[in-house]
């Protein structure tokens, strides 16, 4: 009972602070503080509910237990992180986005190809590509190579479509301007069209960053060596070791946020001139 009252108090207190804070003019500090307090409140309520209602840790372990497991099993978590995120997701991300980018630049010179590939690419980008995972695991084996392959296939089309669209972004007037300078194809591409395409390219890179992690983890459900985040999650669920599963989820969430955040930060650096980046910060 005490835990439940504590949870209720935590909720009321968190909401009250946030309400007060959000009425004040938004500064950098409040914009950071409000979601942080919200998150802490959620964790406190979670802890209180699990303890107060005596929910079995097999169903939902309390945050403190997850933290303890996280610290105790950090070597396993690190090993899984390297296997899945670094070897699988990151390799596939770089390969997939790289080939998609080069393909886009190559087909950009042929309007016929472009008109054919854009609808097909848009169509494929909406398909459940992740279903290719079992096939690719069969082709490339159980180790990280097959996971990287799944990631390549998943990120390829979103990246391709965005880059091709971005390369068409330069305005007619600006292209006329390059013409009056008698600029060649390469110069126009380098000085005008690639910079103008950057917001689209980064949009593709951001979409691809979330897909990459998902692809690498889910592909492990179809076969993997005895390490990796997907492998650990599916086997730990079988052993009802949910605290370890949750620890893996924390790793995945942190890795995912860091990955996305890094791309977004780079975007901010590169496309500082774009209207969507201004008026913030």
């Amino acid at each position: 009972m005490g835990w439940l009252i504590f949870g209720l108090l935590a909720w009321a207190f968190g909401w009250w602070i946030n309400h007060r804070l959000s009425d004040r003019p938004a500064t950098r500090a409040t914009r950071l503080a409000v979601p942080t307090i919200f998150g802490i409140t959620i964790i406190l309520i979670w802890e209180a509910l699990v303890r107060g209602l005596e929910i079995s840790p097999v169903l939902l372990p309390p945050p403190t237990q997850i933290a303890v497991t996280f610290a105790a099993k950090s070597d396993i978590l690190w090993q899984d992180f390297v296997q899945t995120v670094i070897k699988g997701a990151l390799t596939g991300y770089v390969l997939g986005c790289g080939t998609a980018f080069l393909t886009a630049v190559a087909i950009d010179r042929f309007p016929f190809l472009k008109r054919g590939l854009l609808p097909v690419g848009n169509f494929v980008a909406a398909l459940p590509i992740i279903g290719m995972a079992p096939i690719l695991v069969m082709w490339f084996g159980f180790d990280w190579q097959s996971k990287a392959a799944v990631v390549v296939v998943m990120v390829f089309f979103p990246m391709l479509v965005n880059t091709v669209q971005g390369l068409q972004e330069a305005g007619a007037m600006q292209r006329d301007l390059m013409r009056t300078y008698a600029a060649g194809y390469g110069q126009t591409l380098l000085k005008l069209r690639l910079p103008a395409a950057m917001p689209f390219i980064f949009n593709g890179l951001k979409i691809a960053s979330t897909l990459a992690l998902i692809g690498a983890i889910v592909a492990e459900f179809f076969g993997s060596p005895i390490k990796g985040m997907g492998f650990r999650i599916s086997t730990s669920v079988g052993q009802l070791a949910l605290d370890l599963v949750w620890a893996e989820i924390v790793v995945a969430a942190v890795a995912g946020s860091a990955f996305y955040g890094a791309v977004a930060l780079l975007e901010k650096r590169v496309t500082f001139w774009h209207p969507s980046q201004q008026g913030r910060s």
């Binding site: 959000s22 938004a26 979601p35 307090i37 998150g39 992740i130 998902i214 889910v218 996305y260």
Partner: peptide
Amino acid sequence: MSVMPWVIASQTIPILAIAPM
């Protein structure tokens, strides 16, 4: 101010990965 950042953060959890759980 409090929910929107978490809506975005919620998507960094690869939900597909914890689907079995």
